[in-house]
Amino acid sequence: MDKFGYTISKGRQIDYDSNDRRIAEYIYEREPSFRLCIECGGCSATCTTGNFTRFSLRELNILIKRGENEKVRQNIRKCMLCGKCILVCPRGVNTRNVVVLARQAFQKSDDYAV
């Protein structure tokens, strides 16, 4: 390849304008406390699943909010819903419901896709 110059690789940035944030909207509407997250990471630190594998609810939350859904889709079902994160969250986010709603939203979007 002899073409030089600057090209922007697609995966480099969050393309906020064209990303699909409907999953986030779906959750905001049904669980308003989802907006309260300040990304402290308390949930991920205490996470029962996170003890065994790379799984960070904090990360998934922010990815949903930015419309970067693919990683969330691949990982959200790893949550055991044990509820420790609810007890830790300093903002009172109803984390279990966020997970349940995210699962539901992905399920629904998959159903429509078929």
């Binding site: 990304e39 205490t46 996470c47």
Partner: peptide, 12 residues
């Protein structure tokens, strides 16, 4: 202690 290094994105 258990904490997430949120800037590194990994539990610590």
């Amino acid at each position: 202690i258990k904490v997430e290094d949120t800037l590194a994105g990994r539990p610590l």
